[in-house]
Write a protein that binds this DNA or RNA. Structure first.
Lengths: 130, 130
DNA sequence: CCGCATCCAAGTTGATACTG
DNA sequence: CAGTATCAACTTGGATGCGG
């Protein structure tokens, strides 16, 4: 479905003013949050956890290609942001479960359509470039 | 409308199976697309352009803190991905307008709620870490 | 002047090895 | 199993230069 009236350029500005003013300044907190959330691995981890609680090794396998360092770093950041909850059980061998907080779940609900879009359009996009 | 979300821990898995299988593998195209789209500056540029066509210098000012190099690079990537359209006018002084393609516009529609969420939750999140 | 490619310094990421 | 430490590789950004 085409939205645009002229040629094939999309216009219209459905962007709330306060949002625009709030996100673009360099030092604003939203930049930081966005960076964490849209980081290369952040998206994958949040998405994986949206399926439910998972262990470290599950996540490592799920987010194929992630290094242990980045997994640890990503999880720590998301935990500090209050999006992911860490539940370490004092057993041998150690077992740590990760899950989304309510806020993280809220976020993942917004992430899912984005990822779905990327998935659906990926082939087209990649084919388009030679 | 809220889905359910229990007291403290969010569970449930609203993630389509084919999506999950499609996004997590390392070499899949969706990863690439996601990386472009969720890159540090990609989000900001797409968001800025969702307000309508803009010139290079407008974008440079809008995405505060971006370097010329990263602006050029980001725009080129998004253009190659068919999300941004570049319109160079052969005038002196030179003038180049950037705008979203239909596909880019579609994407920005998904990005806006995400950014809005980040903006609304930013303060809470940043305050939460001591 | 505006748009953008190039070079070099600095920060980020990744593979491997090692500890609790 | 869950993470940390270390070093090498890649990415980012800023200054500079140059064409239109």
């Amino acid at each position: 479905m085409k939205v645009s009236a002229r040629s094939d350029t999309a216009q219209a500005a459905p962007l709330p003013v306060d949002l625009a003013d709030g996100v673009f300044p360099a030092g604003c907190p939203s930049r930081t949050v966005l960076d964490h959330v849209t980081s290369k691995w952040g998206v994958l981890i949040l998405l994986a956890l949206s399926e439910g609680e998972q262990r470290w090794s599950d996540l490592r396998r799920r987010a194929e290609g992630i290094s242990e360092k980045m997994l640890a770093q990503t999880l720590k950041t998301l935990e500090r942001d209050g999006l992911v909850r860490r539940d370490a059980q004092p057993v041998i061998p150690p077992r740590v479960d990760y899950s989304l907080t309510d806020r993280g779940y809220e976020l993942s609900a917004l992430l899912v359509p984005l990822v779905a879009w990327a998935f659906e359009n990926a082939e087209d996009i990649v084919n388009g470039q030679r």
